[in-house]
Design a protein around this nucleic acid. Structure first.
Length: 426
RNA sequence: GUGAGCGUAGCUCAGCUGGUUAGAGCACCGGUCUGUGGAACCGGGGGUCGUGGGUUCAAAUCCCAUCGCUCACCCCA
């Protein structure tokens, strides 16, 4: 296909079922999140690169190799957002949201960009809906965040999900743990995969997440203990409290001691929600607590917790479970002229029904049989016919396609009839 | 970024031991059928066979490259 008639690799156009799935997900998310007190925040899709370098973390895969970064005309480094939290926190600081009643609950939705190799459930431009609770370090906030993401997915009809939860402790815990990993793994440096050799220097925690057989074998052989066993009193208590809260709320989970987030800002609770019917890209969403992110970006310290759901992933999960998207909109009435000279009258009729009534009309002349067939095909309940008689008297013949009854009405009476019916499903 | 598989009409696919003008179903448009439909039948538009190069008298078919998609690695949404 020609270059100009092809979307860029890893991007695609959303329409039909696909966009109606996304619309349904967003509609449910919005209802749940706003009922819980969140307001919507739309941040720009690009930010100064530093927002992500500092916010997401210099050593992360996202920052090191997945960002779309370019210079603007003034030579400043700009990056297309690879995730939503850093921008939300930047806005939180910029607009002094710490003076709002705390904690502040924010939800957002929109496209994100990562230069990864595309595969099913992983695009270079993808879409997320996310939620942040900023200004509370309570374990209850963690539970609320998890609960809401779970409820949103459940309300869509999804059942085959698994919540995996873990804790990455606080910075002190991780420092101690990194020392431990270094002491245990350095003697076996040569046995690690090359990726993990690099990680041992930059970010030892990530070695636990490795799927390289040699790494898995080595970790097992050395009986490497999980971070959970190195957590201090405070971290352990927070984690236990979150788990207890989930049990009280009736949310099943499995503990994943290996969970390591790809974003540096996380502390304490971290989780992912996976779907059993998806392939290797099975995480519908993930989130965690970030207690130092606000100050890292230059604000007064404020703890937070948040998550994001991937709209494409959730769509795949819904399709895998046989769930439906929002219905395509159908006209209540389809109007057609019997001769080309009456097409303008058809528009006149349609606009007298808009916007309360969904009315489509034909721009070209249709014989009655043809017009009725088209009305039926479009899923209309009524057909509107405009011929010589109707055009002369500002009227329209309305035919109910189910009962086959029809009557000649003035446009005004027709509008009243249709608007009265509009609330009923057809 | 690494490895493997696959690219023919808007969609699903046939054609591939090279051989007239590249096909089917669905969809779309029109007709049979000029004031009353859902059927049936008939017809039409739409393709540089992903792209570029090579081999050959001849390439959708064989070879190479490239782009894209898919799956896995990786990473996570």
């Amino acid at each position: 296909m020609k270059l100009v008639t092809r979307a860029v690799k890893g991007t695609h156009d959303l329409f039909g079922d696909e966009i109606r799935f996304q619309r349904k997900i967003l509609r449910n998310a919005r209802q749940w999140l706003e009922s819980a007190g969140a307001f919507e925040l739309a941040t720009p899709v690009f930010e100064f690169t530093e927002v992500f370098q500092r916010g997401v973390g210099q050593t992360t895969d996202i920052v090191q190799k997945e960002m779309y970064t370019f210079s603007d005309r003034a030579g400043r480094s700009i990056t297309l957002r690879p995730e939503g939290t850093a921008g939300v926190i930047r806005a939180f600081i910029e607009h002094g949201m710490k003076v709002m009643p705390q904690p502040v609950r924010i939800w957002y939705a929109g496209p994100m960009f990562r230069a990864e190799r595309p595969q099913k459930g992983r695009q270079r431009q993808f879409h997320q809906v996310g939620y942040e609770i900023i200004g509370s370090d309570s374990y209850v906030a963690d539970a609320e965040a998890i609960l809401l993401s779970y409820k949103i997915l459940e309300s869509l009809g999804l059942r085959q999900m698994r919540l995996r939860i873990g804790s990455v402790g606080d910075s002190q815990d991780r420092m101690k743990y990194n020392e431990y990993l270094n002491s245990v793994l350095t003697p076996h440096f040569d046995d690690l995969s090359t990726d993990s050799q690099r990680r041992l220097v930059s970010n030892p925690l990530r070695i636990l997440d490795s799927k390289a057989p040699q790494d898995i074998a080595l970790l097992q052989e050395l009986d490497v203990k999980p971070l959970l066993e190195f957590m201090g009193e405070k971290s352990r208590k927070h984690f236990e409290s979150v788990k207890k809260a989930l049990e009280d709320l009736g949310i099943a989970y499995t503990i994943d001691s290996r969970i390591v987030r790809g974003l540096d800002y996380y502390a304490h609770t971290a989780w992912e929600i996976h779907h059993e019917l998806l392939g290797s890209q099975s995480a519908l969403g993930g989130g965690g607590r970030y207690d130092t992110l606000v100050e890292t970006l230059g604000g007064a310290p404020s703890p937070g917790v948040g998550w994001a759901l991937g709209l494409e992933r959730v769509t795949l999960a819904m399709q895998a479970e046989g769930l439906s998207p929002d219905a395509a909109s159908r006209p209540l009435i389809y109007i057609f002229p019997l001769a080309a000279e009456f097409a303008e009258k058809a528009l006149l009729a349609a606009q007298s029904f808009w916007p309360q009534v969904s009315a489509q009309y034909s721009l070209s002349a249709k014989k009655p049989a043809k017009g009725l067939r088209e009305a039926e095909k479009r899923g209309a309940k009524y057909a509107g016919i405009i011929g010589q008689d109707e055009a002369a008297s500002e009227a329209i013949t309305i035919k109910n396609l189910h009962t086959k009854e029809q009557k000649l009405l003035s446009l005004k009476d027709a509008a009243a009839l249709l608007k009265g019916e509009n609330n009923e499903a057809h």
